[in-house]
Nucleic acid binder design. Structure first.
Lengths: 337, 337
DNA sequence: CTGAAAGCGCTAACAT
DNA sequence: ATGTTAGCGCTTTCAG
């Protein structure tokens, strides 16, 4: 029947009204008389009309899409945030321009580009590695940070990273550990620094030693966790417990040391951060800090849509709670030698 | 300086040419005289002009976005394909409308909706569960399947699922296993059926028994792998090896049986499918079939862009090779009792 | 090789 | 409550 896609004109003609009325019926039905409204809706149904988003966007001076800037779309951590974003953005008819800072050379330059390109109605930033300077510009489109960000006043959705780290340390201390090490994310990343800071201050508050050679730098990946495992194995004086800044690293770490015959938690206790899906399926299950990642995405998207709707470039910030989850990977330290 | 975003008019004025010339310079530089071209480019640089994609799209009767229909964006398997898609689509200035069939009620109805809505220039389908009937419509926008799909002639990018399953069985048989079980994906899913078929035919080709009670239904998730683990533990007459239709399930399976004291591969050999990141980090490492997921995404996107560019709704199909990866989770069967 | 001009389909003043 | 109308910013014939 409908060889060609119907336009608003077709509907107007078919309903015997003007295009303006059709448009109104679809956007603000309340201002249209009931009879007219029904006629229009019938015509819409008959013609199979769908508003042309492009035309609508052009007229309304918006783009209908938001840019998501993230370090690695294939990382399950981010993809789950993405799922949250998508669950809000898609129903609101916003497309997602996903920009992976991992590809292409200069991430900060690209951030600048996106900020000024007018290609999107808003930007959600998930990459905590980009430097704060990159956001100095009077942000034209609203920006929401869905990650920690050093000293920025931009609206954001973040989790209690510092408290999470403190929970991990507290848990290990209560089990009797006094020698606790830490595997960080990449230096410069805000998550890394915040969790490290939480780790540090918890240690000092508990009067526990903080040894630099027990701090191993990682990059959140499983591979780097495995490297940390090798580093730990090679240590003369080993910490009896480790807090790792991501579950991925904890997974890599456990796999590595287990393959070398080390028993978790008998020989070493392991605590991660994130509670990714696999954590409960490892053997032993991984003690960790749960971050509600989907919810982070949902809130960030909602925040951004609010800002877009109200035409503002500032907005509230929000902190989402973390939750401590005990599983088998943490236990009392090995009996003193 | 540039309080407002410059339009093509501003550039034209600044360069002393018409808007048509500016447009040409940017799209088909070769047809513009060198001097003019340079003047225009200078003006572009000065004004900081960026083409308004919305206006361009409206005029050119395209939308500038493609719909990605997938079952679960948070699944690392899909997110990696997504990464591949994004790496092609984003540079080509296409936005991704991500539609998660997991949310919302009727996935097939939504597929219909997307096909007819004219909201996108193309559609990439990653959900092998939707029924073929849903694609009967003379596809208006080009569609590319990045998954197996029963009996559809639509262009697609798929992997050698059947051969992959056969490789797994062959490997286990060569190790000496004669009692091989299988954990499937959800019934009805094409991946499930294809791999099951590969499993079946490999067994019969090798003259090995195929027992229905050794076929456990899963759904690709770690949780369902753990359930399969419980089912295996409860069996009277256990297979000595299992081929699981996804690494996620294999991970859940191994975690479950290991927590019950079972040794892999001494007590049971495990082979997965996918080679997700974690597979090499498990203890023991997981023997599996590698699928190049990023590449699937890349090729699917390229295929779709070609079809869009050429205005066709059909195109070639492509099969991407799988690769067998041996790790520690598979070994000879336990010594005969 | 370049310019003039006609819209793409829609929405939002403004007018009735 | 509804219709008229003027564009949003761009690309693309069609003339020159």
């Amino acid at each position: 029947m409908d060889r060609k896609i119907a336009t608003i004109q077709d509907v107007a003609r078919s309903a015997g009204v003007s295009t303006a009325t059709v448009s109104r019926t679809l956007s603000k039905p309340s201002v249209v008389a009931k009879a007219t409204r029904e006629a229009v809706l019938t015509a819409v149904a008959e013609t199979g009309y769908r508003v042309n988003a492009t035309a609508s966007n052009l007229r309304r001076q918006r783009t209908g899409s938001v840019i998501i800037l993230l370090p690695n779309i294939a990382n399950p951590f981010f993809s789950q945030i993405l799922a949250g974003l998508s669950s809000v953005l898609t129903p609101a008819q916003y497309g997602m321009l996903i920009a992976d800072t991992q590809f292409g050379p200069d991430p900060e330059e690209r951030l600048q580009h996106y900020l000024t390109s007018g290609q999107a109605d808003g930007l959600i930033l998930l990459d905590g590695t980009l430097s704060p300077e990159a956001l100095r510009t009077p942000a034209r489109p609203p920006v929401v940070l869905a990650c920690e960000w050093m000293g920025s006043a931009l609206p954001s959705v973040r989790v209690e990273n510092q408290r999470g780290a403190a929970l991990a340390v507290g848990h290990l201390a209560k089990l009797g550990h006094r020698h606790i090490g830490h595997v960080t994310g990449p230096r410069g990343n805000v998550l890394t620094e915040t969790r490290l800071e939480g780790f540090r201050s918890a240690l000092s508050q508990l009067g526990l030693p903080m040894r630099d050679d027990w701090i191993i730098e990682g990059d959140f990946s499983m591979d780097s966790g495995a490297s940390a495992g090798r580093a730990w194995l090679a240590m003369q004086d080993k910490p009896t417990a480790l807090f790792l800044s991501s579950d991925e690293m904890a997974t890599g770490f456990m796999g590595q040391v287990q393959r070398r015959g080390v028993q978790v938690p008998q020989d070493v206790s392991v605590v991660g951060f994130d509670n990714i899906e696999i954590s409960q399926h490892l053997s032993p299950g991984l003690t960790t800090i749960r971050q509600p990642r989907t919810q982070i995405g949902v809130r960030a998207a909602e925040l951004l849509l609010d800002m877009i709707a109200e035409g503002r470039i500032d907005g509230p910030s929000e902190v989402i709670e973390v939750e401590f989850i005990t599983r088998g990977s943490s236990g009392p330290p090995p009996a003193a030698k």
